[in-house]
Design a protein around this nucleic acid. Sequence first.
DNA 1: GTGGTCTAGACCACA
DNA 2: GTGGTCTAGACCACC
Lengths: 136, 136, 136, 136
Amino acid sequence: MSSTSPVLFDIQPQLATPIYRQVVEQVQRLVAGGQLAAGDELPSVRAVAERHAINPMTVSKAYSLLEAEGLLERRRGLGMVVAASAQPARVGGDRLALLEPALLAVARQANQLGVTPAQAVKALEQAFQSIEQDRP
Amino acid sequence: MSSTSPVLFDIQPQLATPIYRQVVEQVQRLVAGGQLAAGDELPSVRAVAERHAINPMTVSKAYSLLEAEGLLERRRGLGMVVAASAQPARVGGDRLALLEPALLAVARQANQLGVTPAQAVKALEQAFQSIEQDRP
Amino acid sequence: MSSTSPVLFDIQPQLATPIYRQVVEQVQRLVAGGQLAAGDELPSVRAVAERHAINPMTVSKAYSLLEAEGLLERRRGLGMVVAASAQPARVGGDRLALLEPALLAVARQANQLGVTPAQAVKALEQAFQSIEQDRP
Amino acid sequence: MSSTSPVLFDIQPQLATPIYRQVVEQVQRLVAGGQLAAGDELPSVRAVAERHAINPMTVSKAYSLLEAEGLLERRRGLGMVVAASAQPARVGGDRLALLEPALLAVARQANQLGVTPAQAVKALEQAFQSIEQDRP
DNA sequence: GTGGTCTAGACCACA
DNA sequence: GTGGTCTAGACCACC
């Protein structure tokens, strides 16, 4: 999967979470999910910057943080690749742990909104479907 | 419900979202969920500040934004109350709309993590249970 | 016009209306009057603060309110610009609507003072002339 | 005129100017305009408070300020009356001076809105007409 | 460089 | 008692 199509980041500048964080977290999740495997190339800083009309330094910062974290490696003159040491989360539980903050936020907000767990679950299933349509 | 117990905010300083935003969003949801009705009094700036050990100006900023938004009204010299024009979301759909950003975030993150919708739904149900324990 | 000279705020600390409100209202009027167009940059918080010898937070508060109102947009790390959605009042009538509260105040006060409409009109014309002299 | 109908204050709690100030300024203008003459009785604190659903202390504060200013006198057990020393503004110029702040505000706002003096004058005349209709 | 957030504390205005 | 305004200064985040 990683060799067929280049990674496309889902960047939304209008969100509160800073752009470089959006990049960092997406790479983390794509690696944990196995969609980015050791040795896979990442799009160049310039390519990402132009594609999303953002500052190259912002992309560079994200990549640097991921490098410092050990998830990416810098291949001189070639760009960044997923580090050999990077492994997808072994078991489902590890992946769910990464998802938990978002899940807790949903649960808390639903309570305050007076939305029942059953309603929230149903709405989550619909959310998955609406996401599907974006990238069939 | 609004007359029985004073509003309690759930403030978590360690979160990335600033404190004043946490207050703003909670009031928005409590009104939409009907737990705060038109005319209900909000806890005073000083009371909230002392209760959560934060600066009064932080609370004041949140209240001011909610007033600008039309959700709160200032009773001069008395305090803030929920605006007469503030209405709870009439139907469940409106409440779910407020929940949608968080739901989409979960769905997107789950996809990137390789977590299936079914697994996410199950995890969400567990998240609701772990929240329950906080306020029995 | 917007590209030739940076915006200059007319701040008068001795007035009853708070400084941050003066800034907010002036930006609203300058946009409605077309003297600030979509995309125009606003002077930085620090520049305004130093220019008028006021606290940066006071300016920041004004800008934040204008952002919440949708009139300004934050260019992260760069500064504030007039929002793309901000439009000058299309017809003169819209501008006069913004002027109406002040006009009604004059009319009401004139009536209570026993000043005739004709006298008030003449005095208003003189007021325009005295304003002219401030910025030739 | 003052003997035929009791004074009616025009109080608007939603305005930024505090209620007690609205009362103070109106009395000042009504005296300057000759609509309230020396010896005229003012409505009682309680009457005003009930009529406008405001706090009696607010009215009392306004009356006290006007007394301190020498414009009103306290007749024990009878209420407040316009002071014997209170005189209407002798010439029109004095009255216009009291109107000037409001006029300057209109001129300044019009300039920022791109409204010409001629347009503003015309709008002011219309404002007078719309006021007329309220109290024929 | 830009704006954002929070604190601590003072003083004012309103009811 | 209530909230509002402003200051001074620190620290952070983003570009």
